[in-house]
Design a protein around this nucleic acid. Structure first.
Lengths: 205, 205
DNA sequence: ATAATAAGCGGACCGCAGTCCGTTTAGATG
DNA sequence: CATCTAAACGGACTGCGGTCCGCTTATTAT
């Protein structure tokens, strides 16, 4: 299992970088616990950085020093389940993991992603928001590459990289949540449409 | 030509609603002129509601009374070209307008949309942002329906409405701009990929 | 012309994310 | 133990989008 999605204490530094100070580690745990509490109470939208700082009993500056931004905090909160998802589609059992055909894995990927968004919806949304170029987020880049590889495995023709991006765009959390919450579309119908889409795209080259 | 995309002075009221007061109309023109100036000088991101109010010589409350929100203002600034685009794909000459096959019109739609985003990129982005459910915007609903109709015309099978949404998601301005500006993808390559996608989707049902 | 009234107006105000900088403290060194 | 330094800290501060509410004014009816 790689470290692709880990959010290190001080991102960007090489692996052997100086360890985090005790008080800093303690404050991070405090903040994460407080954040989970607040989200349980008020939902993800109800979590503001000021309230979090107050609730955790630290200064506001500390919150931003730890997580960089609100999106960074949300990303950290998601990192565990995110890493789990990633390891499942990269190393887990078929049809999601290796062992099945490219098409089967593509279908399974969409299905898993949809149910992931259904489960962590508002958190995912909050993690994407603000950070502007959400397409450069490490996780997004990884999915993109994953889809591209599966397309190539199926012998997909002209421009697998762009097509992978188009397919990924189809799974945009904001769209999926709007379909389910505003239009009352069932997740099953979403997965059926995804299956149809990737089948058509892959079929014939 | 319908009124589908018009942004009336006081949206939501029936057609015969009371006319706008003279001073209000004058202020709207002032604000729009000032907004265009500011955007020309500082770009769309550089336009803040406070600066706009000051530059136009009105109170901040007036700005929000006129346009509701920053996104509403951007939408108003776009409404002319937006209406033009809409009338072209609904009533204009083929292959964009009626007269060509569904597939040809789908391809032409994507091509036009891509070049529209290339031209008005940051404005479009600012118009979408904030308003949260960008998928319910009248223009977005119209495109969605348009694509759905073209799919049906091609005899598209199981779930034309959802598939139309997926195809539309592929043309998301934020994605397109990120591809061009961050990754240096040429618009031509984008349109080629769109053509490939819709062709595969339509082909065979 | 005058009065009545609803629309329009301005800018103080709010809550938010994010920054800045003077102060405190963990932990390494001698 | 005393000292030193870089990391961590806190909270005042900024700029933003958006709201509120008491005052002003265009318009219409008399």
């Amino acid at each position: 299992m790689s470290d692709v999605s880990s959010i290190p204490p001080r991102p960007g530094l090489p692996a052997g970088a100086a360890a985090e100070r005790r008080d800093a580690a303690r404050n991070r745990e405090r903040l994460l616990a407080a954040a989970r509490e607040l989200i349980a109470d008020c939902g993800a939208e109800g979590l503001t950085m000021d309230r979090l700082a107050e609730h955790a009993g630290v200064g506001k500056g500390t919150v931003f020093r730890r997580f960089g931004s609100r999106a960074g905090l949300m990303l950290t909160l998601l990192s565990e389940s995110e890493a789990d998802f990633q390891s499942r589609f990269m190393f887990g059992p078929p049809p999601l993991g290796p062992g099945a055909s490219g098409l089967e894995r593509l279908i399974a990927f969409g299905v898993e992603r949809i149910s992931y968004v259904m489960e962590f919806g508002d958190l995912v949304l909050a993690a994407e928001h603000a950070s502007r170029r959400r397409f450069e987020a490490p996780a997004a880049v990884l999915w993109h590459r994953h889809i591209e590889i599966l397309l190539r495995e199926e012998g997909f023709g002209p421009d697998p990289w762009l097509m992978a991006g188009s397919l990924a765009a189809t799974l945009d959390p904001e769209r999926l949540l709007s379909l389910v919450k505003v239009h009352g579309i069932s997740p099953d119908r979403l997965t059926a449409s995804w299956r149809d889409l990737v089948t058509r795209v892959v079929r014939g080259a």
